[in-house]
């Protein structure tokens, strides 16, 4: 403990302070204009009734109260939470499994495979959605055509995008294909960073591949996995593109999301106040999850 050491008072380095301020100013200005101001504006607008044209009327928390009474909003709310849950439960273990397998069985297929897994992630979501429709469409879709060819009538009868019980899972399957590429590449990069001697030590101690994965690799990539979880959850809360392009949020409210409702309230229904309130809900949810996951990380760090 050297806290009691008395340091001599140095004269303030004004030039340094000015320099730092000048260097920071553009970043602060950018953040203020493009982040803080819009966030503040969204909060303000969420308390107004506004069509975008004409005057805004202050209505207090009416927009929020109205949202939680609305069946569509509740459906969208549940959908994004389910989406977030299943993303973490299905997509992340899947990414880890593929990444670990690719790292373990390293041969000349590894690089092409990594590229193939990542490819779906590079496609714009409009293209992904088109491919999805191409696969799932009734009658002309890939699955329907195959089913017809092999006379699998049970498969032919399945309405992947039109059945309210199935549409969510059809889009989720497509999203799993499209989004896990990033997780795979990211986890591979982290698994490859694990020093060789740790792997060798584990082998010498008699660990098999499952034990090595479970007791060595998994704890060592815990932090990247947590980052992936945060990205997945926040991404799920903001989800818009695939469900909107594939089913417009239907059938019924089966695939609607907070993002879709926000877009429709703001741009189609001319309800800027209500759209802003949804934006605030998404913002607060994202904030809560992010802070919770990072503070979990910090607490574990302190324990260690």
């Amino acid at each position: 403990m050297q806290a009691t050491q008395i340091r001599p008072r140095r004269p303030r380095d004004w030039r340094g302070i000015v320099f730092q301020a000048v260097m920071l100013l553009p970043a602060i200005a950018f953040l203020a204009i493009f982040m803080y101001y819009p966030i503040e504006e969204t909060f303000r607008l969420s308390l107004m009734r506004s069509t975008g044209l004409g005057d805004e009327v202050y209505v207090g928390f009416q927009n929020y109260a109205r949202l939680f009474r609305d069946a569509e909003f509740r459906a969208g709310f549940v959908n994004v939470l389910l989406w977030a849950f299943w993303s973490v439960v299905i997509q992340i273990p899947y990414s880890f499994f593929v990444a670990y397998a690719l790292c373990l069985y390293r041969n000349h297929f590894t690089r092409p495979l990594r590229a193939i897994f990542f490819l779906a992630n590079v496609l714009p979501s409009a293209i992904t959605a088109m491919l999805g429709q191409f696969v799932f469409a009734p009658r002309y879709g890939v699955i329907a055509t195959l089913a017809q060819r092999f006379k699998w009538t049970w498969l032919q009868r399945i309405d992947f995008l039109g059945d309210p019980d199935l549409a969510f899972w059809s889009i989720f399957a497509l999203a799993t294909w499209a989004y896990t590429g990033f997780g795979i590449v990211y986890l591979m990069a982290n698994i490859e960073q694990i020093p060789r001697d740790i792997e060798e030590a584990a082998k010498l101690d008699g660990a098999n591949r499952w034990q090595y994965a479970w007791h060595v690799v998994l704890p060592m990539v815990a932090y990247p996995i947590r980052i992936l979880a945060i990205l997945s959850i926040v991404g799920s809360l903001k989800l818009f593109d695939l469900p909107y392009l594939m089913t417009r949020g239907g059938p019924g409210y089966a695939t609607t999301t907070l993002g879709i409702i926000l877009y429709q309230q703001g741009f189609v229904n001319w309800q800027y106040g209500r759209a802003a309130a949804i934006g605030v809900v998404i913002f607060l949810l994202s904030l809560v999850f992010t802070v919770a996951l990072f503070s979990m990380q910090r607490r574990e760090g302190e324990l260690q």
């Binding site: 009734p138 009658r139 009868r157 309405d159 995008l161 039109g162 059945d163």
Partner: peptide, 9 residues
């Protein structure tokens, strides 16, 4: 409207 009316665009 067919067996899959909501599935068709």
């Amino acid at each position: 409207f067919g067996p899959t009316p909501l599935g068709e665009a």
